[in-house]
């Protein structure tokens, strides 16, 4: 029955290449009209370039001033080109330790938040249980609450529990605020997954564990990856919450903040620019690999 109801493919697309009427030749138009037409054609490109410039300009300034040879403590005015800072990026007391601390915290909080968040996302996306709706709502609290409030409250909590501030309090705080983002990213992926795929895997002799490892996880992977990247960058550059819970521990953002009061060595710009380039390199490598895989397939 449905066969006759199915629209026949083909036919309707035959001869689909309509030609637009050729526009009037350019030399027949007046100069303002020509400019207007050019603008109309390129307006999207133009705005795109402007938006891109708006987003990257701060990074370019940071990069430029990493080559500055500042006169005095503050790296705010251009004074001359030098490669000194790039040759000795850790040549400021404390900068290396703070960077390592930040990377450690970012790695660990990414790890914990991703594992925990993925589990939460699967639970919320797959199962109905008491408190599911409430959990879904509460997840948005860390995302929507002002960081200052959250940082201060956490600080109060740790203080009252007599937990001394330091590396571990920072880590706990970071895992907490990264968690929501991971859950949201992974849950979208879990909800979009066809449950038939897992049934198909089971039908093809995969045990529940194998089904999870071979089908569920790989399909959820882009969401998990996105969540992890988000967690890493959120943790790495968090200042406000960290500031309330750090004790003597100095993360890189806190070092920069402290340096801003004591003076800003161009080494800060070097490390900032390096982070920028690493991020871009990661994106480009990812893009190239996907493209290559696509080409191989066709």
């Amino acid at each position: 029955m449905t066969a006759t109801l199915t629209p026949q493919t083909g036919g309707s697309h035959a001869g689909g290449s309509h030609r637009r009427a050729t526009p009037p030749a350019a030399h027949q138009l007046s100069a303002p009209a020509r400019a207007l037409r050019w603008l109309r054609r390129n307006v999207v490109t133009l705005f795109g370039i402007l938006a891109l410039a708006y987003m990257t300009l701060p990074n370019l300034v940071v990069l430029l001033f990493s080559f500055n040879d500042p006169n005095g403590k503050f790296n705010y005015t251009w004074n001359g080109f030098t490669l000194d800072a790039w040759k000795d990026p850790f040549g400021v007391a404390g900068i290396k330790d703070s960077l390592i601390t930040s990377l450690e915290i970012a790695f660990l909080s990414t790890l914990f938040a991703t594992v925990l968040g993925t589990a939460v996302a699967f639970a919320l996306g797959r199962y109905r249980f008491r408190g599911r709706g409430l959990t879904n709502t509460l997840l948005f609290v860390p995302m929507s609450m002002p960081e200052v409030v959250m940082g201060a409250s956490l600080g109060t909590l740790f203080l009252n529990m007599r937990i001394s501030f330091g590396f571990w309090t920072i880590l706990i705080a970071h895992v907490m605020f990264c968690l929501s983002f991971v859950v949201v990213a992974v849950k979208a992926r879990v909800l979009g997954m066809d449950p038939k795929l897992e049934e198909a895997a089971q039908d093809l002799y995969a045990s529940p564990t194998q089904t999870f490892l071979r089908v569920t996880l790989p399909i959820a992977a882009p969401g998990i990856g996105a969540g992890a990247l988000l967690a890493f960058s959120l943790s790495f550059d968090d200042f406000v919450i960290t500031n309330f819970n750090s004790g003597d521990t100095v993360t890189f953002p806190m070092f920069v903040w402290g340096a801003a009061q004591r003076g800003t060595p161009p080494q800060i710009n070097v490390i900032g620019s390096a982070m920028f380039f690493i991020a871009i390199a990661v994106v480009i490598v990812g893009q190239v690999r996907t493209n290559r895989r696509k080409q191989k397939a066709s």
Binding site: D194, E199, A200, V215, P218, A221
Partner: peptide, 10 residues
Amino acid sequence: VFQNYALFPH
């Protein structure tokens, strides 16, 4: 053979 094939997209 499932109603909508359920091929593994990855």
